[in-house]
Amino acid sequence: MNLPNAAIEQIEKRLPKVVDARTHGIIDYCHAAFFFGMAWMCRKKEPRAAMAALLTGGFILVESMLTDYPLGVKKVIPFETHGRMDAAFAGASFMVPKVFGFEGTTAANIFVGNGFTESAVVGMTDWNSEQARAEEHDGGFAIAS
């Protein structure tokens, strides 16, 4: 296990579970908007970073819209599975600058910071609480079996 992933695992285990499903959804949509904004800001000076940010924002938006939490649109991804996807995404954020070829730039630092921030959100989210399950069925958000 590499150092960033080991750090992520420790962060996730030790944080208090204070983020509920609805709050996590709000964070997700803000997260997607952040990366779309980053794509716009980087489009001329850092086109590779802009493409990575655009793909990241798109991934986060689609994942959010398909999750079975209160702000999901078509609830096909269980909330707990969303959490595992977020954890994997946090680890992958460290590799994005190398894969897309913009290492050593300010944009690369944003992706590294995102890895740690995403880890903190994953670590503070209560993925399997009774409250999270109850919210999945509140206000017409029932999940079809």
Rank of each mutant, 00 (worst) to 15 (best):
M1S: 11
M1N: 11
L3S: 03
N5F: 03
N5P: 00
I8P: 00
E9M: 05
E9H: 10
Q10D: 07
I11R: 07
I11H: 04
I11E: 05
L15W: 06
L15I: 04
K17C: 07
K17D: 00
V19Q: 04
D20S: 15
R22W: 14
T23R: 12
H24E: 10
I27W: 14
I27A: 14
I27T: 12
D28G: 12
Y29M: 08
Y29E: 06
Y29F: 15
Y29L: 11
C30D: 03
A32H: 12
A33L: 15
A33P: 05
F34I: 14
F34G: 07
G37H: 09
G37Q: 12
A39I: 09
A39K: 13
C42H: 05
K44L: 07
K45Y: 01
K45C: 01
E46L: 04
M51Y: 09
A52W: 04
A52I: 03
A53M: 09
L54T: 06
L55H: 04
L55N: 00
T56S: 14
T56I: 02
T56L: 08
F59L: 13
I60N: 01
I60T: 08
I60W: 01
E63M: 12
M65W: 04
M65G: 02
T67I: 06
Y69N: 05
P70L: 02
L71D: 00
G72T: 05
G72A: 06
V73T: 09
K75Q: 14
E80V: 11
E80S: 11
E80H: 06
T81C: 05
H82E: 10
H82P: 07
G83D: 08
G83S: 12
R84M: 08
M85P: 08
D86F: 10
D86H: 15
A88D: 11
F89N: 14
G91Q: 13
G91Y: 13
A92D: 07
A92R: 04
F94D: 05
F94E: 02
F94M: 06
M95H: 12
V96Y: 03
P97Q: 09
K98S: 14
K98V: 01
K98D: 09
G101L: 00
G101S: 04
G101A: 01
F102D: 05
F102W: 09
T105P: 03
A107F: 01
A107S: 06
A108Q: 04
A108R: 05
N109F: 10
I110R: 00
I110Y: 10
V112K: 10
T117L: 15
E118M: 14
E118A: 14
S119T: 09
V121Q: 03
V121W: 07
G123V: 10
D126S: 15
W127L: 10
N128I: 03
E130W: 02
E130T: 10
A132M: 12
H137R: 11
H137T: 12
G139M: 10
G139I: 06
F141H: 14
I143L: 14
S145L: 09
S145T: 09
